Simulated assay, not measured.
Amino acid sequence: MDEPVSGRFLWAVLGREVFGLPRATLEKAAVPHPTRSQAVQAGIAAMQRHIEPAPARRA
């Protein structure tokens, strides 16, 4: 979570640290959110997209 301008909140989903390399940004807010709460909710939704397994394909 970052607030680069007062009242404008950005979120980012970062990958794991691997062997001391910098963590990669997997996804980030395209536009700032007007409240911290909205940014947190959007960030949580983004995190869930990265941790939930993809649905199994049906043959």
Rank of each mutant, 00 (worst) to 15 (best):
A24Q: 15
L26R: 12
G15I: 01
L21K: 15
P53Q: 11
G20W: 01
S37P: 10
H33V: 02
R16V: 07
A12E: 14
F19C: 03
G7V: 02
A30W: 00
R36H: 11
R8P: 01
H33Y: 14
A54H: 13
T25L: 04
A45S: 11
S6F: 04
G15W: 04
A45M: 06
V31E: 15
P22L: 06
V40H: 12
R57M: 04
V5Y: 08
R58G: 04
M1F: 11
G43N: 03
A30T: 05
T25E: 14
L10H: 07
L21P: 02
P34D: 05
A30C: 02
L26K: 13
G7L: 03
A56L: 14
V5R: 08
V13K: 04
G20S: 06
A42E: 07
R16G: 02
A39G: 15
R49C: 09
R8W: 02
M47F: 08
A12L: 03
E3P: 00
E3Y: 02
A59S: 12
A30L: 13
A12R: 10
P4F: 07
S37G: 11
R16I: 01
S6P: 07
Q48V: 13
G15V: 04
P4S: 08
T25D: 06
Q38C: 07
G7Q: 02
S37N: 13
A24C: 05
G43M: 10
Q48S: 07
F19W: 09
I51G: 12
F9N: 02
R23G: 06
R23L: 03
V31C: 08
Q41S: 12
Q48T: 08
G20V: 02
Q38E: 14
A42C: 03
P32F: 01
F19K: 15
T25P: 05
A12K: 06
A59G: 10
Q48P: 00
L14Y: 15
R57E: 14
T25Q: 12
A39K: 12
A12M: 09
A56P: 12
V13S: 04
H33P: 00
L10N: 10
M47L: 14
V40W: 10
A42M: 08
F9R: 07
G20L: 03
D2M: 07
R16L: 07
Q48R: 12
V31F: 02
I51C: 09
